[in-house]
Design a protein around this nucleic acid. Structure first.
Lengths: 207, 207
DNA sequence: TTCATTCTTGATCAAATGGTCAAGACGCGT
DNA sequence: ACGCGTCTTGACCATTTGATCAAGAATGAA
Protein backbone atom coordinates (compact mmCIF):
# COMPACT_ATOMS: atom_id res chain seq x y z
CA UNK A 1 0.00 0.00 0.00
CA UNK A 2 2.12 2.81 -1.29
CA UNK A 3 -0.66 5.40 -1.48
CA UNK A 4 -1.62 7.70 1.35
CA UNK A 5 -4.18 6.24 3.71
CA UNK A 6 -7.09 8.34 2.40
CA UNK A 7 -7.39 8.80 -1.35
CA UNK A 8 -9.90 11.61 -1.68
CA UNK A 9 -10.18 12.28 -5.39
CA UNK A 10 -8.19 9.87 -7.52
CA UNK A 11 -10.58 9.61 -10.46
CA UNK A 12 -10.31 6.73 -12.86
CA UNK A 13 -10.50 7.19 -16.62
CA UNK A 14 -13.77 5.25 -16.64
CA UNK A 15 -15.10 7.39 -13.82
CA UNK A 16 -14.51 10.66 -15.68
CA UNK A 17 -15.98 9.29 -18.88
CA UNK A 18 -19.11 7.89 -17.33
CA UNK A 19 -19.77 10.78 -14.99
CA UNK A 20 -19.51 13.03 -18.00
CA UNK A 21 -21.94 10.86 -19.96
CA UNK A 22 -24.37 10.87 -17.05
CA UNK A 23 -24.25 14.63 -16.49
CA UNK A 24 -24.83 15.33 -20.18
CA UNK A 25 -27.82 12.99 -20.32
CA UNK A 26 -29.15 14.24 -16.99
CA UNK A 27 -29.08 17.85 -18.16
CA UNK A 28 -31.19 16.90 -21.16
CA UNK A 29 -33.69 14.90 -19.17
CA UNK A 30 -34.01 17.15 -16.11
CA UNK A 31 -34.37 20.29 -18.22
CA UNK A 32 -37.10 18.71 -20.31
CA UNK A 33 -39.17 17.02 -17.62
CA UNK A 34 -38.18 18.72 -14.36
CA UNK A 35 -36.84 16.92 -11.30
CA UNK A 36 -39.95 14.98 -10.35
CA UNK A 37 -40.87 14.36 -13.97
CA UNK A 38 -37.55 12.69 -14.73
CA UNK A 39 -36.69 9.11 -13.92
CA UNK A 40 -33.31 7.52 -13.37
CA UNK A 41 -34.23 5.04 -16.08
CA UNK A 42 -34.67 7.81 -18.63
CA UNK A 43 -31.22 9.15 -17.86
CA UNK A 44 -29.69 5.69 -17.84
CA UNK A 45 -31.17 4.79 -21.21
CA UNK A 46 -30.13 8.13 -22.72
CA UNK A 47 -26.49 7.61 -21.80
CA UNK A 48 -26.42 3.87 -22.43
CA UNK A 49 -25.77 2.74 -18.88
CA UNK A 50 -27.85 0.48 -16.67
CA UNK A 51 -29.79 2.00 -13.81
CA UNK A 52 -27.75 0.32 -11.06
CA UNK A 53 -24.61 1.38 -12.84
CA UNK A 54 -25.76 4.96 -12.82
CA UNK A 55 -26.49 4.66 -9.11
CA UNK A 56 -22.97 3.41 -8.63
CA UNK A 57 -21.65 6.81 -9.65
CA UNK A 58 -24.38 8.87 -8.00
CA UNK A 59 -25.98 7.16 -5.03
CA UNK A 60 -29.25 9.07 -5.21
CA UNK A 61 -31.32 10.77 -7.86
CA UNK A 62 -30.91 13.96 -5.92
CA UNK A 63 -27.13 13.70 -6.19
CA UNK A 64 -27.29 13.60 -9.97
CA UNK A 65 -29.54 16.64 -9.99
CA UNK A 66 -27.31 18.58 -7.63
CA UNK A 67 -24.24 17.72 -9.70
CA UNK A 68 -25.85 18.86 -12.95
CA UNK A 69 -27.05 22.06 -11.34
CA UNK A 70 -23.67 22.92 -9.89
CA UNK A 71 -21.90 21.95 -13.08
CA UNK A 72 -24.06 24.35 -15.08
CA UNK A 73 -24.20 27.25 -12.62
CA UNK A 74 -20.71 28.63 -13.13
CA UNK A 75 -20.97 28.53 -16.89
CA UNK A 76 -24.34 30.24 -16.88
CA UNK A 77 -23.28 33.22 -14.80
CA UNK A 78 -19.87 33.68 -16.45
CA UNK A 79 -20.81 36.43 -18.92
CA UNK A 80 -22.18 38.66 -16.16
CA UNK A 81 -18.88 38.42 -14.30
CA UNK A 82 -17.15 39.90 -17.32
CA UNK A 83 -19.14 43.14 -17.17
CA UNK A 84 -16.34 45.71 -16.86
CA UNK A 85 -16.85 49.25 -15.62
CA UNK A 86 -13.83 50.40 -17.59
CA UNK A 87 -15.34 49.80 -21.02
CA UNK A 88 -18.05 51.59 -22.97
CA UNK A 89 -21.42 50.85 -21.34
CA UNK A 90 -23.46 50.34 -24.51
CA UNK A 91 -20.82 48.12 -26.09
CA UNK A 92 -20.43 46.18 -22.85
CA UNK A 93 -24.16 45.68 -22.32
CA UNK A 94 -24.69 44.83 -25.99
CA UNK A 95 -22.07 42.15 -25.70
CA UNK A 96 -23.63 40.80 -22.52
CA UNK A 97 -27.11 40.62 -24.04
CA UNK A 98 -25.83 39.00 -27.21
CA UNK A 99 -23.80 36.42 -25.33
CA UNK A 100 -26.82 35.59 -23.15
CA UNK A 101 -28.99 35.17 -26.23
CA UNK A 102 -26.38 33.01 -27.91
CA UNK A 103 -26.33 30.82 -24.83
CA UNK A 104 -30.12 30.57 -24.88
CA UNK A 105 -30.06 29.47 -28.51
CA UNK A 106 -27.10 27.13 -28.19
CA UNK A 107 -27.88 25.58 -24.81
CA UNK A 108 -31.54 26.07 -23.92
CA UNK A 109 -31.33 23.06 -21.61
CA UNK A 110 -29.17 24.94 -19.14
CA UNK A 111 -31.61 27.82 -19.01
CA UNK A 112 -34.59 25.51 -18.63
CA UNK A 113 -32.86 23.64 -15.82
CA UNK A 114 -32.54 26.86 -13.81
CA UNK A 115 -36.00 28.03 -14.70
CA UNK A 116 -37.38 24.78 -13.34
CA UNK A 117 -35.29 24.99 -10.22
CA UNK A 118 -36.28 28.58 -9.41
CA UNK A 119 -39.90 27.96 -10.34
CA UNK A 120 -40.08 25.11 -7.86
CA UNK A 121 -38.61 27.12 -4.99
CA UNK A 122 -34.86 26.93 -5.68
CA UNK A 123 -34.39 24.66 -2.67
CA UNK A 124 -31.23 23.13 -4.11
CA UNK A 125 -29.50 26.45 -4.76
CA UNK A 126 -30.82 28.60 -1.93
CA UNK A 127 -27.34 29.03 -0.49
CA UNK A 128 -25.97 30.01 -3.86
CA UNK A 129 -28.67 32.62 -4.41
CA UNK A 130 -28.16 34.23 -1.04
CA UNK A 131 -24.39 34.11 -1.27
CA UNK A 132 -22.33 34.27 -4.46
CA UNK A 133 -25.17 35.30 -6.77
CA UNK A 134 -26.32 38.12 -4.50
CA UNK A 135 -22.78 39.43 -4.25
CA UNK A 136 -22.29 39.23 -8.01
CA UNK A 137 -25.52 41.07 -8.74
CA UNK A 138 -24.72 43.78 -6.21
CA UNK A 139 -21.26 44.23 -7.70
CA UNK A 140 -22.56 44.50 -11.24
CA UNK A 141 -25.42 46.78 -10.21
CA UNK A 142 -22.73 49.04 -8.79
CA UNK A 143 -20.96 49.01 -12.16
CA UNK A 144 -24.13 50.15 -13.92
CA UNK A 145 -24.71 52.75 -11.22
CA UNK A 146 -21.21 54.11 -11.81
CA UNK A 147 -21.94 54.48 -15.52
CA UNK A 148 -25.04 56.47 -14.61
CA UNK A 149 -23.12 58.68 -12.17
CA UNK A 150 -20.51 59.29 -14.86
CA UNK A 151 -23.28 60.37 -17.22
CA UNK A 152 -22.43 57.64 -19.72
CA UNK A 153 -25.96 56.21 -19.74
CA UNK A 154 -29.32 57.52 -18.64
CA UNK A 155 -30.61 56.71 -15.17
CA UNK A 156 -32.19 53.31 -14.63
CA UNK A 157 -32.61 50.98 -11.65
CA UNK A 158 -29.54 48.76 -12.09
CA UNK A 159 -30.89 45.67 -10.35
CA UNK A 160 -34.18 45.68 -12.20
CA UNK A 161 -32.31 46.30 -15.42
CA UNK A 162 -30.25 43.17 -14.81
CA UNK A 163 -33.50 41.30 -14.11
CA UNK A 164 -34.91 42.60 -17.38
CA UNK A 165 -31.91 41.36 -19.34
CA UNK A 166 -32.16 37.95 -17.70
CA UNK A 167 -35.89 37.74 -18.23
CA UNK A 168 -35.85 38.67 -21.90
CA UNK A 169 -32.81 36.67 -22.96
CA UNK A 170 -33.73 33.52 -21.07
CA UNK A 171 -37.29 33.82 -22.34
CA UNK A 172 -36.03 32.67 -25.76
CA UNK A 173 -34.78 29.45 -24.20
CA UNK A 174 -37.38 28.76 -21.52
CA UNK A 175 -40.38 29.64 -23.69
CA UNK A 176 -38.86 28.43 -26.97
CA UNK A 177 -41.97 26.41 -27.79
CA UNK A 178 -44.14 29.50 -27.54
CA UNK A 179 -41.64 31.74 -29.31
CA UNK A 180 -41.27 29.33 -32.21
CA UNK A 181 -45.03 29.01 -32.54
CA UNK A 182 -45.66 32.75 -32.62
CA UNK A 183 -42.68 33.75 -34.74
CA UNK A 184 -42.28 33.36 -38.46
CA UNK A 185 -40.08 30.31 -38.96
CA UNK A 186 -37.76 32.40 -41.12
CA UNK A 187 -36.66 34.51 -38.15
CA UNK A 188 -32.90 34.28 -37.69
CA UNK A 189 -30.93 34.57 -34.43
CA UNK A 190 -29.22 37.71 -35.72
CA UNK A 191 -32.58 39.40 -36.24
CA UNK A 192 -33.70 38.47 -32.75
CA UNK A 193 -30.46 39.72 -31.24
CA UNK A 194 -30.79 43.07 -32.98
CA UNK A 195 -34.40 43.46 -31.85
CA UNK A 196 -33.70 42.56 -28.22
CA UNK A 197 -30.64 44.80 -27.95
CA UNK A 198 -32.65 47.68 -29.37
CA UNK A 199 -35.56 47.12 -26.98
CA UNK A 200 -33.37 46.90 -23.89
CA UNK A 201 -30.66 49.46 -24.63
CA UNK A 202 -32.17 52.25 -26.69
CA UNK A 203 -33.65 53.85 -23.60
CA UNK A 204 -30.22 54.03 -21.97
CA UNK A 205 -28.40 55.96 -24.66
CA UNK A 206 -27.63 59.58 -23.83
CA UNK A 207 -28.87 61.95 -26.48
CA UNK B 1 -89.61 12.44 -16.43
CA UNK B 2 -90.39 16.02 -17.18
CA UNK B 3 -86.90 16.99 -18.34
CA UNK B 4 -85.61 16.64 -21.88
CA UNK B 5 -84.17 13.22 -22.64
CA UNK B 6 -80.50 14.33 -22.39
CA UNK B 7 -79.50 16.70 -19.61
CA UNK B 8 -76.06 17.92 -20.69
CA UNK B 9 -75.04 20.44 -18.09
CA UNK B 10 -77.42 20.64 -15.17
CA UNK B 11 -74.88 21.38 -12.45
CA UNK B 12 -75.79 20.78 -8.84
CA UNK B 13 -74.99 23.30 -6.12
CA UNK B 14 -72.58 20.79 -4.59
CA UNK B 15 -70.97 20.22 -7.97
CA UNK B 16 -70.20 23.89 -8.51
CA UNK B 17 -68.91 24.31 -5.00
CA UNK B 18 -66.62 21.30 -5.06
CA UNK B 19 -65.33 21.83 -8.58
CA UNK B 20 -64.45 25.35 -7.54
CA UNK B 21 -62.66 24.10 -4.44
CA UNK B 22 -60.75 21.57 -6.50
CA UNK B 23 -59.69 24.03 -9.18
CA UNK B 24 -58.44 26.52 -6.59
CA UNK B 25 -56.42 23.89 -4.77
CA UNK B 26 -55.16 22.39 -8.02
CA UNK B 27 -53.88 25.75 -9.23
CA UNK B 28 -51.86 26.12 -6.05
CA UNK B 29 -50.43 22.63 -6.17
CA UNK B 30 -49.76 22.37 -9.91
CA UNK B 31 -48.11 25.80 -10.05
CA UNK B 32 -45.85 24.95 -7.14
CA UNK B 33 -44.79 21.42 -8.05
CA UNK B 34 -45.54 21.07 -11.77
CA UNK B 35 -47.76 18.40 -13.28
CA UNK B 36 -45.61 15.36 -12.57
CA UNK B 37 -44.53 16.73 -9.22
CA UNK B 38 -48.09 17.09 -7.97
CA UNK B 39 -50.17 14.26 -6.59
CA UNK B 40 -53.92 13.88 -6.48
CA UNK B 41 -53.59 13.37 -2.74
CA UNK B 42 -51.94 16.77 -2.32
CA UNK B 43 -54.80 18.47 -4.09
CA UNK B 44 -57.40 16.43 -2.22
CA UNK B 45 -55.90 17.28 1.16
CA UNK B 46 -55.57 20.96 0.27
CA UNK B 47 -59.26 21.27 -0.55
CA UNK B 48 -60.48 18.92 2.17
CA UNK B 49 -61.91 16.20 -0.06
CA UNK B 50 -60.97 12.56 -0.27
CA UNK B 51 -59.00 11.31 -3.25
CA UNK B 52 -61.82 9.15 -4.65
CA UNK B 53 -64.18 12.05 -4.18
CA UNK B 54 -61.91 14.27 -6.22
CA UNK B 55 -61.78 11.60 -8.92
CA UNK B 56 -65.56 11.58 -8.91
CA UNK B 57 -65.53 15.14 -10.27
CA UNK B 58 -62.48 14.75 -12.53
CA UNK B 59 -61.91 11.20 -13.70
CA UNK B 60 -58.21 11.62 -14.33
CA UNK B 61 -55.36 13.74 -13.00
CA UNK B 62 -54.92 15.04 -16.49
CA UNK B 63 -58.51 16.29 -16.54
CA UNK B 64 -57.94 18.41 -13.44
CA UNK B 65 -54.83 19.89 -14.97
CA UNK B 66 -56.54 20.66 -18.26
CA UNK B 67 -59.45 22.31 -16.44
CA UNK B 68 -57.17 24.53 -14.34
CA UNK B 69 -55.16 25.49 -17.39
CA UNK B 70 -58.19 26.42 -19.45
CA UNK B 71 -59.80 28.20 -16.52
CA UNK B 72 -56.74 30.41 -16.11
CA UNK B 73 -55.91 31.03 -19.77
CA UNK B 74 -58.63 33.53 -20.59
CA UNK B 75 -57.98 35.60 -17.50
CA UNK B 76 -54.26 35.70 -18.12
CA UNK B 77 -54.48 36.99 -21.68
CA UNK B 78 -57.30 39.47 -21.05
CA UNK B 79 -55.19 42.64 -20.59
CA UNK B 80 -53.48 42.16 -23.96
CA UNK B 81 -56.87 41.99 -25.68
CA UNK B 82 -57.63 45.46 -24.37
CA UNK B 83 -54.67 47.08 -26.15
CA UNK B 84 -56.44 49.72 -28.27
CA UNK B 85 -54.91 51.38 -31.29
CA UNK B 86 -57.11 54.43 -30.75
CA UNK B 87 -55.50 55.51 -27.49
CA UNK B 88 -52.15 57.04 -26.68
CA UNK B 89 -49.43 54.38 -27.14
CA UNK B 90 -47.33 55.21 -24.10
CA UNK B 91 -50.36 55.40 -21.81
CA UNK B 92 -51.77 52.20 -23.29
CA UNK B 93 -48.52 50.26 -22.98
CA UNK B 94 -47.89 51.65 -19.50
CA UNK B 95 -51.29 50.42 -18.43
CA UNK B 96 -50.66 46.99 -19.98
CA UNK B 97 -47.29 46.58 -18.28
CA UNK B 98 -48.67 47.71 -14.92
CA UNK B 99 -51.66 45.39 -15.14
CA UNK B 100 -49.39 42.48 -16.03
CA UNK B 101 -47.14 43.28 -13.07
CA UNK B 102 -50.12 43.56 -10.76
CA UNK B 103 -51.27 40.15 -11.92
CA UNK B 104 -47.82 38.71 -11.29
CA UNK B 105 -47.82 40.08 -7.76
CA UNK B 106 -51.43 39.17 -6.96
CA UNK B 107 -51.61 35.78 -8.66
CA UNK B 108 -48.15 34.36 -9.23
CA UNK B 109 -49.63 30.87 -9.32
CA UNK B 110 -51.31 31.51 -12.65
CA UNK B 111 -48.07 32.71 -14.17
CA UNK B 112 -46.12 29.81 -12.77
CA UNK B 113 -48.68 27.36 -14.10
CA UNK B 114 -48.13 28.63 -17.64
CA UNK B 115 -44.39 28.83 -17.22
CA UNK B 116 -44.37 25.18 -16.21
CA UNK B 117 -46.62 24.20 -19.07
CA UNK B 118 -44.57 25.99 -21.74
CA UNK B 119 -41.29 24.87 -20.21
CA UNK B 120 -42.38 21.25 -20.49
CA UNK B 121 -43.41 21.51 -24.12
CA UNK B 122 -46.87 23.06 -23.90
CA UNK B 123 -48.46 19.80 -25.01
CA UNK B 124 -51.77 20.60 -23.31
CA UNK B 125 -52.18 24.01 -24.96
CA UNK B 126 -50.54 23.43 -28.33
CA UNK B 127 -53.81 24.07 -30.14
CA UNK B 128 -54.35 27.27 -28.20
CA UNK B 129 -50.88 28.59 -28.98
CA UNK B 130 -51.21 27.93 -32.71
CA UNK B 131 -54.74 29.28 -32.88
CA UNK B 132 -56.22 31.98 -30.67
CA UNK B 133 -52.95 33.15 -29.10
CA UNK B 134 -51.17 33.46 -32.43
CA UNK B 135 -54.07 35.47 -33.84
CA UNK B 136 -54.15 37.72 -30.78
CA UNK B 137 -50.43 38.40 -30.90
CA UNK B 138 -50.53 39.14 -34.61
CA UNK B 139 -53.44 41.54 -34.11
CA UNK B 140 -51.72 43.40 -31.30
CA UNK B 141 -48.39 43.45 -33.13
CA UNK B 142 -50.30 45.18 -35.91
CA UNK B 143 -51.56 47.76 -33.41
CA UNK B 144 -48.00 48.56 -32.32
CA UNK B 145 -46.89 48.64 -35.95
CA UNK B 146 -49.62 51.16 -36.68
CA UNK B 147 -48.40 53.39 -33.87
CA UNK B 148 -44.92 53.25 -35.41
CA UNK B 149 -46.23 54.08 -38.88
CA UNK B 150 -48.15 56.99 -37.42
CA UNK B 151 -44.94 58.27 -35.86
CA UNK B 152 -46.36 58.03 -32.35
CA UNK B 153 -43.56 55.80 -31.07
CA UNK B 154 -40.11 54.95 -32.33
CA UNK B 155 -39.57 51.85 -34.48
CA UNK B 156 -39.34 48.52 -32.70
CA UNK B 157 -40.07 44.92 -33.63
CA UNK B 158 -43.65 44.61 -32.31
CA UNK B 159 -43.65 40.86 -31.71
CA UNK B 160 -40.36 40.85 -29.87
CA UNK B 161 -41.53 43.83 -27.89
CA UNK B 162 -44.58 41.88 -26.74
CA UNK B 163 -42.26 39.00 -25.83
CA UNK B 164 -40.13 41.41 -23.81
CA UNK B 165 -43.13 42.69 -21.88
CA UNK B 166 -44.25 39.15 -21.13
CA UNK B 167 -40.77 38.03 -20.16
CA UNK B 168 -40.06 40.91 -17.80
CA UNK B 169 -43.46 41.12 -16.12
CA UNK B 170 -43.89 37.38 -15.65
CA UNK B 171 -40.32 37.14 -14.40
CA UNK B 172 -41.47 38.73 -11.15
CA UNK B 173 -43.95 35.90 -10.62
CA UNK B 174 -42.06 32.91 -12.05
CA UNK B 175 -38.72 33.82 -10.49
CA UNK B 176 -40.14 35.41 -7.35
CA UNK B 177 -37.85 33.36 -5.12
CA UNK B 178 -34.80 34.72 -6.88
CA UNK B 179 -36.17 38.27 -7.09
CA UNK B 180 -36.99 38.35 -3.40
CA UNK B 181 -33.56 37.04 -2.52
CA UNK B 182 -31.67 39.59 -4.60
CA UNK B 183 -33.87 42.59 -3.85
CA UNK B 184 -33.91 44.66 -0.71
CA UNK B 185 -36.96 43.50 1.26
CA UNK B 186 -38.16 47.09 1.45
CA UNK B 187 -38.81 47.23 -2.28
CA UNK B 188 -42.46 48.10 -2.94
CA UNK B 189 -44.58 47.03 -5.94
CA UNK B 190 -44.96 50.67 -6.99
CA UNK B 191 -41.18 51.06 -7.18
CA UNK B 192 -40.86 47.93 -9.27
CA UNK B 193 -43.63 49.05 -11.61
CA UNK B 194 -41.98 52.42 -12.18
CA UNK B 195 -38.61 50.81 -12.87
CA UNK B 196 -40.00 48.23 -15.30
CA UNK B 197 -42.12 50.75 -17.20
CA UNK B 198 -39.10 53.01 -17.56
CA UNK B 199 -36.86 50.19 -18.79
CA UNK B 200 -39.33 48.94 -21.38
CA UNK B 201 -40.89 52.17 -22.63
CA UNK B 202 -38.29 54.93 -22.46
CA UNK B 203 -36.74 53.76 -25.70
CA UNK B 204 -40.06 54.08 -27.51
CA UNK B 205 -40.79 57.70 -26.74
CA UNK B 206 -40.37 60.12 -29.63
CA UNK B 207 -38.04 62.97 -28.79
C1' DT C 1 0.02 -13.92 -15.49
C1' DT C 2 -1.69 -12.46 -10.97
C1' DC C 3 -4.90 -10.43 -8.20
C1' DA C 4 -6.78 -6.58 -5.74
C1' DT C 5 -9.60 -2.97 -7.08
C1' DT C 6 -12.98 -1.07 -9.83
C1' DC C 7 -16.95 -1.57 -12.56
C1' DT C 8 -21.43 -3.70 -14.11
C1' DT C 9 -25.97 -5.68 -13.76
C1' DG C 10 -30.05 -9.01 -13.06
C1' DA C 11 -33.02 -9.68 -9.54
C1' DT C 12 -35.49 -7.76 -6.10
C1' DC C 13 -37.72 -4.65 -2.59
C1' DA C 14 -40.60 -1.05 -0.48
C1' DA C 15 -42.96 3.06 -1.07
C1' DA C 16 -45.60 6.19 -3.75
C1' DT C 17 -49.22 6.95 -6.72
C1' DG C 18 -53.00 6.96 -10.35
C1' DG C 19 -57.07 4.89 -10.62
C1' DT C 20 -61.28 1.47 -9.50
C1' DC C 21 -65.27 -0.26 -7.08
C1' DA C 22 -68.94 -1.47 -4.25
C1' DA C 23 -71.30 -0.08 -0.41
C1' DG C 24 -73.20 3.29 2.17
C1' DA C 25 -74.43 8.40 3.40
C1' DC C 26 -76.68 12.33 2.07
C1' DG C 27 -79.66 15.97 -0.49
C1' DC C 28 -83.72 17.20 -2.17
C1' DG C 29 -88.11 17.35 -4.73
C1' DT C 30 -92.48 15.25 -3.92
C1' DA D 1 -91.44 10.63 5.53
C1' DC D 2 -90.25 8.53 1.09
C1' DG D 3 -87.35 7.28 -2.51
C1' DC D 4 -84.34 8.29 -6.30
C1' DG D 5 -80.32 10.15 -7.76
C1' DT D 6 -76.20 12.42 -6.17
C1' DC D 7 -72.28 12.32 -3.37
C1' DT D 8 -68.62 10.15 -0.43
C1' DT D 9 -65.16 6.94 0.98
C1' DG D 10 -62.48 2.78 2.83
C1' DA D 11 -60.35 -0.85 0.81
C1' DC D 12 -58.00 -2.37 -2.85
C1' DC D 13 -55.22 -2.98 -7.27
C1' DA D 14 -51.49 -2.41 -10.81
C1' DT D 15 -47.77 0.16 -12.18
C1' DT D 16 -43.96 3.06 -11.65
C1' DT D 17 -39.87 4.18 -9.55
C1' DG D 18 -35.98 5.11 -6.30
C1' DA D 19 -32.85 2.30 -4.21
C1' DT D 20 -30.22 -2.15 -2.68
C1' DC D 21 -27.33 -6.19 -3.07
C1' DA D 22 -24.70 -10.02 -4.18
C1' DA D 23 -22.32 -12.05 -7.71
C1' DG D 24 -19.72 -11.77 -11.64
C1' DA D 25 -16.83 -9.15 -15.34
C1' DA D 26 -13.38 -5.93 -16.63
C1' DT D 27 -9.30 -3.15 -15.53
C1' DG D 28 -4.71 -2.25 -14.76
C1' DA D 29 -0.43 -2.14 -11.80
C1' DA D 30 3.24 -5.37 -10.45
Amino acid sequence: MQKTKAKPAAKTRIQSENQDLILKAALDVFSTYGFRGSTIDQIAIKCGLSKPNLLYYFRRKDDIYAAVLEHTLTQWLAPLRMLDVGNDPIAELTRYIEVKLDMSFANPAASKLFANEILHGASHIEKYLKGPLKELVEAKAAVIQQWIVDGKIRAVDPTHFIFAIWAVTQHYADFSVQVETLLKPSEKPATIKAAVVEILLRGLKVT
